[in-house]
Design a protein around this nucleic acid. Structure first.
Lengths: 213, 213
DNA sequence: GCCATCTTGCACAACCATGTGCAAGATCAC
DNA sequence: GTGATCTTGCACATGGTTGTGCAAGATGGC
C-alpha cells in the first residue's frame, strides 16, 4: 500500500507548479473551454512538455479540475437546508451560485460534456434535492402541479444556466446574480413573480453576504 | 447584372445534389454539430471532393443551412400576433417551437456559435417582440415587474432552450413540447403555474395542430 | 451522339491538436 | 557540493480536419 521508499522527498516547487497548472486551467478554460494544453502550460509558467510530468493526459488535468469543483459544490450544498421546499429551492440556488458564478464557462463545459460522469455525485445530489422539493411543493400547493417533479427540476436547473449566461452578458455582480438565479428558479418552480419576491423579502438572508456560514 | 451567357443550362442532378447536401447536413449536424464534411458528403451520396463544387467552404454550407432555418422561423413568427402580451409570448413559443423542435442541436449550435450573425435578423425579431411583450405585460401587471424587460426576454429565451434539451432527454412529442415551452416561457414571464395553465385553457388553439395557419 | 457539366479518386499541402523519447540543463533536498 | 528531481527544447509520430489540383470517368442537356 505504501509507496516504495523514496531516496528523497519530492521537490516543493513541483507541487506548486502542479497547482499553478490547475489554476491556469481554471482561468483559461473559463474564457475558452477548448484552450490548448500549450496555452495553459505557458500561462502557468511552464512548457507543454512539463505538463506531462504532472498529468498523464490533458483529460486527466481537466478531470481533476472538475472533481475539485464538484467537491466544493457538494460541500456547499450540504451547508444548509430548509423544511419549506420553496425556500429550499431558493437556498439551493444561492448556495450553488456562489460556488459557480466565477467559473461560468467551465460549468457549462463540464456539466454538458464528457466530464459529466466525473461530477455525477455532486450533480445527483442537487438534482435529487430539487426533485424532492418540486414534489413536496406540488403537494403543498406552493409549487407547480402541472408537470412531473423530474421535469420541474430540469427547468430549474436550466434556469440557473440561463442566468449564468445572462450574468456574463450583463456583467452582473455576485449579489445581482444571486437574486436573479433565485427569482428564475422560483419562477420555474411555478411561483408568480410576486410570490417569488415575497420569498426573498421574508428570507433576507438569502441575499446576505455569508449568511449561511 | 445578368450572368454571362451560358453555353448550356446547368444539369438538374447537380441542383438535386446540392439540396441533398444541405439536407444531409441538417440531419447529421443535428446529431453531432461537429460532423465532418466527409460524413455529410457520404450521407448525401457524394464525395467530399464534390462538395467543393457546390460550396467554396464548409462554413458556407453551414451558413446557407442556418440562413434557411432563420428565414423559416422569421416567416413563422410573422404569421400571428396577439394584443395581449401574455398570450403573445405563448404564441411566440408555439410558433418558434414548431419550426425548431426537429433541429434542436442545430439551433443550439447556430444561436450560440459564430454563425449567429448570419441569423441576426430573425433572432432580433423574436427578441424585440419578447422585450415588447415583457414591457407591456409588466405595465398591465400580468407579467413580472421585478426585472428589466430585456432580462425577462432572455429568461424566456433561455427557458425555450431548456425545453429543447428536456425534449431530447424525455423524448417529448411535438404537442408535449409545445405545451412545455409555453408553460416554461410564461413562468419566466412571471406568471404562476395556475395562471399559465389558465392561459392554455383559454386559448386552446395554442396547442392545436395547425391552429394559426 | 456530342460535349459541357458534374463527379470521382487520388495525391498533396497545411494546420492544429495530443502524446512520447531523449539529452541537456536548472533547481531544490539533503 | 552532490545527486535526485523536475524542466526544457527539440524532434517526431499520430490523427484529425479543411481545402486544392488534376486527370479520368459518369451523366444529362441539346
Amino acid at each position: 500500500m505504501t509507496d516504495p521508499p523514496r531516496a528523497r522527498a519530492p521537490r516543493r516547487d513541483a507541487a506548486a507548479n502542479r497547482e499553478a497548472l490547475i489554476e491556469a486551467a481554471r482561468v483559461l478554460l473559463n474564457e475558452d473551454p477548448e484552450t490548448s494544453l500549450d496555452t495553459i502550460a505557458t500561462a502557468a509558467g511552464l512548457t507543454r512538455r512539463a505538463v506531462y510530468g504532472h498529468f498523464p493526459s490533458r483529460n486527466t488535468l481537466l478531470a481533476e479540475l472538475a472533481e475539485r469543483g464538484a467537491a466544493r459544490v457538494a460541500a456547499a450544498v450540504a451547508r444548509a437546508t430548509s423544511d419549506d421546499p420553496v425556500v429550499d429551492v431558493a437556498l439551493l440556488g444561492r448556495l450553488v451560485w456562489d460556488e459557480i458564478e466565477h467559473v461560468r464557462a467551465m460549468t457549462r463545459m463540464v456539466v454538458h460534456g464528457p466530464l459529466r460522469e466525473r461530477i455525477g455525485p455532486a450533480l445527483g445530489l442537487i438534482h435529487e434535492r430539487l426533485v424532492g422539493d418540486a414534489a413536496r411543493a406540488a403537494e403543498l400547493g406552493t409549487g407547480r402541479g402541472d408537470l412531473p417533479p423530474e421535469v420541474v427540476a430540469h427547468l430549474i436547473e436550466g434556469a440557473a444556466f440561463t442566468v449564468l449566461d445572462e450574468s456574463t452578458r450583463a456583467g452582473l455582480s455576485r449579489v445581482e446574480g444571486r437574486r436573479l438565479v433565485i427569482l428564475a428558479g422560483l419562477s420555474a418552480l411555478g411561483l408568480s413573480w410576486r410570490e417569488a419576491q415575497a420569498v426573498l423579502d421574508t428570507h433576507r438572508a438569502l441575499l446576505d453576504e455569508e449568511a449561511q456560514r
